[in-house]
């Protein structure tokens, strides 16, 4: 079963142009806030109407601007988990779930079954405002499954939670979704969440989607600077390709990449925990002056200035465990290196 969406929509100065396809493996839609992730989900669910495009689910056309098809949300069979869960405040948990069961004769039985599967029996007669965050999430998901969806959309399910609760709910949501066999689109701005929960990822950058890749692929070779940024990479510097090496005029060095550098490569990215202190003369070792040291929660962030750097060149950010930095703490300068395979070649 697949969900295919091809959506173009203009909202003021903002242009959305998204192509995505989700099969039985979870697809993450990863993007910074305001890049159009929620708008995309709303268009797929039928809450917003795209200007043009085509949306289909399991061969059933939900929207097609050319053919004039636009099914209302009620007939799309797409479950939507809202950020704040959107439980009906005037109904109990049981009523919330029962309301979503289409067939009246099955309502009571389906609701009872879902309440027990989602461990909500004790909360069944309570109202949403009396539930814990975890219960609210389970109730919202149970309600979605009660409506018998063929695909499920998750709109930043944990955006408003503190990190401990977020971690617990994330585990739980992932488990509860295991039983659901249809396409799942998981919207997030958090690379860790995407890595842990999804197999595929589609990067959305100011309204434009990149082709979906596996999460491993995104972290190994993001391809573009915006994708690299979303994958957590912090160091960027413009380069000139030179065979299987890159020249970096701003830093006054040439680094080996261990593979041919495509001619359209304009920038390289280096993850800050891949920068390491190295002996003089090691592969890609650069002499640097220590510009600033920032103490972080579990480690140290060191900002380095390559000795041949031009004025205004970006500093190199290096992240180290505290014990690795201790022996170097008094050094004003050091050699830092990055392995050839750790250099991300970006367009």
């Amino acid at each position: 079963m697949t969900l295919k969406a091809d959506i173009r929509k203009r909202l003021g100065n903002f242009h959305l142009d998204v192509h995505l396809e989700a099969g039985s493996e979870r697809l993450a839609l990863l993007g910074a806030s305001g890049c159009g992730k929620s708008v995309t989900l709303r268009c797929i669910a039928g809450i917003l109407r795209p200007d043009e495009g085509h949306i289909e689910l399991d061969g059933r056309v939900l929207y097609d601007s050319a053919a004039g098809i636009d099914l209302p949300p009620q007939r799309r069979k797409i479950g939507y988990l809202f950020q704040q869960y959107a439980l009906f405040p005037n109904m109990t948990v049981r009523q919330n779930i029962a309301a979503a069961v289409g067939d009246k004769s099955l309502r009571a039985a389906r609701a009872a079954d879902l309440l027990s599967r989602f461990r909500l029996e004790d909360a069944a007669e309570r109202r949403p405002c009396q539930l814990s965050g975890g219960q609210q999430q389970r109730a919202a998901l149970a309600r979605i499954l009660a409506s018998g969806p063929m695909a499920v959309l998750l709109d930043e399910p944990f955006s408003a939670l503190d990190s401990y609760l977020k971690y617990q709910l994330e585990l739980e949501l992932s488990d509860l979704l295991e039983d659901f066999s249809g396409p799942v689109v998981w919207v997030s701005h958090d690379r860790g969440e995407v890595w842990r929960n999804c197999r595929w990822v589609c990067v959305l950058d100011s309204g434009r989607s990149a082709p979906a890749v596996t999460t491993e692929e995104l972290f190994r070779s993001p391809g573009t600077q915006s994708a690299a940024r979303l994958s957590g990479c912090k160091n960027y510097v413009p380069i000139r390709p030179a065979g299987d090496r890159v020249e970096i005029p701003l830093w006054g060095v040439t680094l080996s990449c261990g593979r041919p550098v495509p001619p359209d490569t304009a920038v390289i990215g280096i993850r800050s925990h891949r920068v390491r202190p190295a002996p003089e003369g090691a592969v890609n070792a650069i002499p640097c002056a220590v510009s600033r040291v920032i103490d972080d929660v579990f480690g140290v962030i060191v900002l380095l200035r390559p000795q041949a750097a031009l004025p205004g060149a970006p500093l190199v950010r290096m992240e180290l465990p505290r014990e690795d930095w201790a022996p170097l703490a008094d050094a004003g300068s050091l050699w830092a290196s990055v392995l050839p395979e750790d250099i991300l070649l970006l367009k």
Binding site: I47, Q74, R76, A86, P89, A99, A100, S147
Partner: peptide, 18 residues
């Protein structure tokens, strides 16, 4: 009124009258 409640209702298949 929080319009996401109405949006949620529609994606759950509830009629506009309901």
């Amino acid at each position: 009124f929080d319009e996401t409640l109405s949006d949620a209702g529609r994606t759950l298949g509830l009629s506009n009258t309901y």
